[in-house]
Computed example of a mutant assay.
Amino acid sequence: MNSKIGDLIYAGKAKDVYETDNPTQVIVKFRDDITAGDGIKSESLVKKGFYNSVISSKFFEVLEKSGIKTQYIELIKPGYMLCKKLDMIPLEVITRNIAAGSLIKKFPFTDKQELNPPVIQMDYKNDEYHDPMLNDSITIALGLATQQELDGIRDITLKINAILKDFLLERDILFPDFKIEYGFDSQGNIVLGDEISPDTCRFWDSKTWEVLDKDLFRKGESGVMDAYMKVASMILSNEDKEKWNINL
């Protein structure tokens, strides 16, 4: 590992962020913890951090090649991602292409209804308040972002959605919805951060509609790691698998 892990900056539900010997960079450690319901339900799954990190790194590389600015620098080794240090914006930006989950519980959408154009939802990332949904007025009043920044986040998010939706469909995966987060880099640019993985996205097999994400854990079903590994097997190239010694 070229970059030296320093002090712990932040410990989340499934990842830890550490300082490095470069003040503009951090190392994100993907743990094997999995949670649901604001962390009320939790477990540890062998190699979950391994697979989430390689899946996330693949998506970040695809986005970078398409001109999207991300905090990703490199996957040092599975489980450890070198990233640009960001000042994170406490927003969860959720994009929905197909109605599922909380959307059909709160609104009269039909299960699996196609949403065209996609629905973009922003939630306040705050466990104390249980991540409530926001509108622009509340977001601005709380000082979380300006109108210009919110407009920019939506534009970037729609581009990310189009890129990943096409990438996944080519690999027989549907992309019902996903949650992403943004932060400001040292130059004040809005940059994509956090992760893009089965923990933060819904993935369905386009041929069988099989669930390939954390919904299995939320519902208490088996095969969570099998689903994560299947996503990896479907999106990683043979070169990726060989590089990280992944046999799927």
Rank of each mutant, 00 (worst) to 15 (best):
I140W: 05
D199N: 11
E92P: 05
S237L: 03
G223W: 11
T110D: 11
V211C: 14
E92W: 07
I140Y: 05
T200V: 12
F30H: 04
S237F: 01
T20R: 04
G193F: 11
Q187S: 13
D87C: 00
A227M: 07
K241W: 02
D226V: 12
D151C: 10
G101C: 06
I104C: 01
E221R: 12
Q147E: 13
V17L: 09
D7T: 04
G193A: 10
V46G: 07
D226R: 09
L86W: 04
F109T: 02
R171I: 00
I163A: 06
T146F: 07
I104T: 12
K84F: 08
A11F: 01
D166W: 04
L45Q: 11
K48R: 14
T208A: 02
I196T: 12
Y124K: 07
W209Y: 13
L91Q: 08
V28F: 14
K165M: 09
Y129L: 15
Y18E: 03
L164D: 06
K13Q: 00
A99V: 05
W244A: 03
L169C: 06
S186H: 11
F167V: 07
Y10N: 00
D131L: 01
L192Y: 10
L75P: 00
A141N: 10
W244T: 04
E114L: 15
L103V: 13
S222R: 10
I55S: 03
F203M: 07
L45C: 09
K4P: 00
W244M: 03
N245R: 11
G79D: 03
K241P: 03
K84W: 09
G223R: 13
M88T: 02
S3P: 03
F167P: 02
K58L: 00
A36W: 08
A14D: 06
R218S: 09
D151Q: 13
N247V: 14
K241C: 09
F167H: 04
Q121F: 06
V211T: 15
I196W: 11
G12A: 05
L248H: 01
D215H: 10
I180W: 11
D32E: 10
M122K: 10
E195M: 11
D215N: 11
N52Q: 12
P78G: 01
E170R: 12
K243Q: 04
D166Y: 07
I246C: 05
L192V: 15
N135I: 13
D21T: 15
T157L: 08
F109A: 04
V26H: 01
D172H: 09
D205Y: 01
N116R: 13
N189M: 05
D151E: 14
K159D: 04
G37E: 11
N161E: 04
F184L: 08
I246F: 14
L150T: 06
I235E: 00
I68R: 06
D33M: 05
K207I: 06
G193C: 12
I5N: 02
T157G: 06
I163R: 09
M1P: 02
D21A: 12
T95L: 14
W244S: 02
Q113M: 14
I180D: 09
D226S: 14
T208S: 12
I34K: 05
N126E: 11
I94M: 07
S186R: 10
E43T: 14
P78D: 01
